[in-house]
Amino acid sequence: MNRLIKHAITASLLLSPLAAAAQADYPTRPVSYILHVSPGGATDIMARRLSIELEKSLKQPFVVENVPGGRGAAQFAKLNSADPNGYTIAAVTSTHIGAMNQTLKSYNVDSFDWIARLATEPYLVVVPASSPIKSMKDLVEQANSKPGSLVMAGFVRGSGGHFAWEIMAKAAGVPSANVRWVPYDSVGDAVTATLGGHSGAAIAYVDLVRTHVESGALRVIGIMTDERVPQLPDVPTLKEQGINADTSWQQMRGIIGPKGMPDDIKAKIASAVEEALKTPEMVAYYKESSLLSAFQGPADFTAQAKKEDGTTKALMKDLGIK
């Protein structure tokens, strides 16, 4: 037994310079980039765009692999069983943090290494153009004067958008029970329902409502950011309207890896990502998709994920969501 350990130690001592060398010239073979979504959607296209830029700078292909099973479960399982050597990374969004607290409780923020944050999308409140609600003040007034009369559409209870609404409702003094939250299968479906007048308002993102705002079918009455966004210059922030909601609560997109990745590999990926986001192609893509550039390296991103996890847990407790 002792001998075995001795051998193992010798072997690892002999191999460690090799391992270090391997890390220094990482990547030497293709990297697989696992997504939790089917091909074609916004997250998928962003990953494919990014992988082109990463391939240019790191000289190895980043192979996008769609593993959409079980609402993220299959992606987590695959990532969890991969070697933490930098050759398997995965897409992450705020929805994952929600899932870790609801359906995928066998994972938590510490189950993975947080490598880089890519972008954020702020939440906004949108109403049909024909609605009498012209501002957040009107919305608060209707919600509080006639409880139950306002129907708010969005993604499932416990999702980022739902919590965004609860955060702003609390800041605006609207009791949670006054507004009926109707969960749709996607934020896009919620916007469609609002377009059709089946819902009085919705919580959505800039990208999903822009064309309808331009065509005059929908009106955005407030956006949860510190400053106005360039795509919707006429839309006042919630702060301007006197609602002090936590503007750091935004839908995030990033990259994670299996637990225990070497720090230098994480740093290498993160700096390649940071550079990629500055290329004209990615800048144009961000502008077109109404994404906010919000790069964070491993340390900041880990802290941010923990903060979001904490906010999620607190909100779930408040709202009685299990």
Binding site: R71, T103, S106, S159, P183
Partner: peptide, 22 residues
């Protein structure tokens, strides 16, 4: 699969079923 309103898992014996039966 996952309950459409409350987001709770129902009869999910394997995580792969969270999105319903493929």
């Amino acid at each position: 699969g996952t309950d459409p309103v409350d987001g709770v898992a129902r009869f999910v014996v394997n995580d792969g079923l969270l999105g319903g039966i493929p």
